[in-house]
Design a protein around this nucleic acid. Structure first.
Length: 312
DNA sequence: CCCCAGGCTTTTC
DNA sequence: GAAAAGCATGGG
């Protein structure tokens, strides 16, 4: 029997956008009866449906997740504690009126507070590759290495897969795993190494979760791992460690910094030096403590409004 | 064959 | 030290 929860948000929230907003491709996103979204987090299956602009219902066989009441976990997971009106500086709409027009419709987007290990692996799959292929890789990883679960929902059987554990990926055969990484052997090897370091405690999320760690130190620590550079390190901080101040700069962010904010640095080739310069510029344009959160909204706005990309 | 896709690593100056 | 080239793979 499934428990039912109603989750309220003080801001508008778009389930569709939110589900696709972070790199949460482990979600087994399937449209169920064109209404429900099916997902699994930390072995807990969730069935989610928007019932209005600022509330949605969740069905699950369990009442809690990670020893936290489910409704509480979901508030945290969807960042419902963040007031999206306050993510941008007060005078931002005056400085950028044209951009503001495009931007406000993306406020329902939510940054998800995702599991750090999931985030590391997901973003390691996202180097110089299209969104379509990134999601394919994550799906294959969960299907091949994640524990299978079947749940009955509204009389139908639904098959889900947990995200693989660090131990499972650490023990994987590199060649076999490369089937899940777009046949990229180097990426597969890096994923195995990183998983082993997590399993051995050499990458310790308890420690990394400390919000007193300065961003540049966090970035340096994470990017010591092979296959993780500045951008992916910042993605891990933003999506996996709840550091909404972290501002990952990828090809799209670089483009909109040039086009929307006249950044001269953004017109130059990307390098560690120019990365840090753009990072500093973004902190002046945005609220430093929410630079990454705002950047993520700008990111999706750029992709959809300017680049005309259809999928998240 | 070209270029691009939510970059990273190694080589070269 | 920093800029440039190399890398790896699939898709348009």
């Amino acid at each position: 029997m499934l428990n039912r929860f109603i989750i309220h948000s003080k801001n508008n929230i778009s389930i569709t956008d939110t589900l696709f907003s972070g790199q949460s491709f482990q979600w087994n996103i399937e449209l169920f009866d064109h209404v429900y979204y099916i997902s699994i987090i930390d072995s807990v299956p969730l069935f989610i449906r928007a019932v209005s602009s600022n509330e949605f219902e969740v069905y699950s066989p369990y009442k809690q997740i990670k020893c936290i009441p489910l409704s509480e976990f979901i508030c945290s997971y969807f960042s419902l504690d963040v007031d999206t009106e306050k993510v941008f500086p007060e005078n931002f709409h005056e400085l950028h009126p044209y951009l503001w027009e495009l931007l406000t419709q993306y406020f329902p987007l939510r940054i998800l507070r995702q599991d750090p290990f999931e985030t590391i692996i997901s973003f390691m799959c996202a180097q110089g590759i299209g969104m379509h292929l990134i999601r394919k890789q994550i799906s294959m990883l969960t299907e091949m290495y994640g524990e299978k679960r079947t749940v009955t929902f509204k009389g139908k059987e639904v098959v889900l897969h947990n995200f693989p554990t660090p131990e499972r990926l650490a023990a994987a055969d590199p060649f076999a795993l490369s089937r899940c990484t777009n046949n990229n052997r180097i990426r597969a090897a890096n994923i195995i190494t990183a998983s082993r370091r997590v399993a051995e405690g050499k990458i310790d999320f308890e420690t990394l979760h400390n919000r007193d760690i300065p961003l540049d130190e966090l970035r340096r620590t994470l990017s010591e791992n092979s296959g993780i550079g500045f951008k992916i390190a910042d993605c891990i901080a933003l999506f996996g460690l709840g550091r909404f101040d972290a501002f990952p700069i990828d090809t799209h962010v670089k483009q909109y910094l040039g086009a929307w904010f006249n950044s001269a640095t953004a017109l130059r080739p990307l390098s560690p030096a120019s990365y840090l310069m753009m990072d500093a510029e973004a902190r002046r344009l945005l609220k430093p403590e929410f630079a990454g959160y705002a950047g993520h909204i700008l990111f999706h706005c750029w992709r959809k409004e300017i680049k005309k990309l259809r999928s998240f």
